[in-house]
């Protein structure tokens, strides 16, 4: 008896993409937390802080890069860590592992989810930025930089999020662990305030992590080149942004491959 062929990878990837989009957008808390949080942040901080960064750039224009960084980190790092930890502790992953679904399809679904959530967040933020604060949208080649920096940053943070999910026992403990870490990283990476106001040694700490490079790459998109002088290196360092984010992707991937589990460690 020859068994009929298993469904094609594209078909299963398609299923997983649909499943992940529904799982995310139907869960009110995750939508509010991930999508609305950066928007509220933009509205709140944009209303409170209003100083001139030089070269005629106001705080909202500066903050666009920061709040989009926060949006991408939320859609990737926090979203992955919290929801995969939840899926592991409630048995969803274990159940999937008992089916012929290829593991790659699970991750493909997550990638589609992250991309969709990140794009939705960015579009929302740009819309609010333009309508409420009249920020200048990127022009010409800046869009390309915007795209690759976002994709590379999201990829690194997604992989890290998946790796971190393995350290946390439940979705709730993942949330309690990852949310403060993300906030601190964002703070020292110049997301909420101009990076040159962060103390030098903290800048050095931040430079180890991907968030600072994501934020820096996005600043190059939203700020005039005159402001590059305020960066620690005196330039946007886009080459280094690509290098560090790429290195984090590799490290994240290695961590995922080494640590990923389909069930709680203590149920094996």
């Amino acid at each position: 008896m020859s068994a009929p062929a298993l469904p094609s990878l594209t078909r299963v990837y398609g299923t997983r993409a649909r499943v992940e989009l529904r799982e995310f957008f139907r869960q009110r808390e995750s939508v509010v937390f991930t999508l609305a949080f950066p928007v509220l942040l933009l509205l709140a901080l944009g209303a409170v802080l209003d100083y001139d960064l030089g070269a005629g750039v106001g705080f909202p224009q500066y903050f666009m890069a920061g709040v989009i960084t926060a949006g991408i980190v939320g859609a990737s790092l926090q979203n992955m860590a919290i929801h995969i930890a939840g899926e592991r502790s409630d048995g969803t992953l274990k159940s999937l592992a008992g089916t012929p679904m290829p593991a790659s399809a699970y991750f493909a679904g997550k990638v589609v989810q992250v991309l969709a959530v990140a794009v939705a967040t960015i579009v929302l933020l740009l819309g609010v930025g333009v309508l409420v604060y009249g920020i200048d949208l990127p022009s010409g080649g800046d869009w390309l930089t915007f795209a690759w920096v976002s994709v590379l940053g999201a990829a690194a943070c997604t992989l890290l999020g998946i790796a971190v999910s393995t350290l946390c026992r439940t979705g709730r403990s993942a949330s309690a662990t990852v949310t403060p870490i993300a906030l601190v990283l964002e703070f020292v990476s110049g997301v909420f305030l101009p990076f040159d106001q962060v103390p030098g040694w903290l800048q050095d700490v931040a430079a180890v992590f991907p968030v600072k490079w994501l934020a820096q790459g996005l600043r190059s998109v939203f700020l005039p080149d005159a402001l590059a002088a305020q960066e620690p290196a005196g330039s946007w360092e886009l080459g280094r942004v690509a290098l560090v984010l790429g290195a984090w992707c590799v490290l994240g991937l290695v961590l995922c491959v080494l640590t990923f589990r389909w069930q709680d460690r203590d149920t094996r």
């Binding site: 298993l6 529904r22 969803t92």
Partner: peptide, 20 residues
Amino acid sequence: AGDSQLSVRELLEARASYYA
């Protein structure tokens, strides 16, 4: 089989699509 936002039918359809 864990928790989900999907409906019963959607869950079954997704699961069915993994099989030959």
